[in-house]
Amino acid sequence: MSGAATEATAGEWPLWEIFIRSQHGLAHKHVGSLHAPDVTLAIRNARDVYTRRNEGVSIWAVRSVDVHASAPGDRETLFDPANDKIYRHPTFFPMPDEVKHL
């Protein structure tokens, strides 16, 4: 389920991150991880583990070691700049009640 991938012990199948696109045309969404020796079995196992109840119409499998994540220590420098730009939200601009369709 994403995050600090641990080095597999010898003989252990590698870890994959699984993304599923639901039926409603939304983007693929991370649903969890699983072990598989290759991509064919990763997708087959993902079908069994993550789509037993029609959860999706498409599966992506990505090796966990290939996922690069932002560092938790960078959270402030990365995301704080968005905090003071509230004018990016439409609610920043009060509109008169009598003006419609805005």
């Binding site: 389920m1 994403s2 600090a4 641990t6 012990t9 252990e12 870890l15």
Partner: peptide, 9 residues
């Protein structure tokens, strides 16, 4: 496994 242990362990 996200807590730095392997499945086999």
């Amino acid at each position: 496994e996200t807590l730095r242990v392997t499945r086999d362990q």
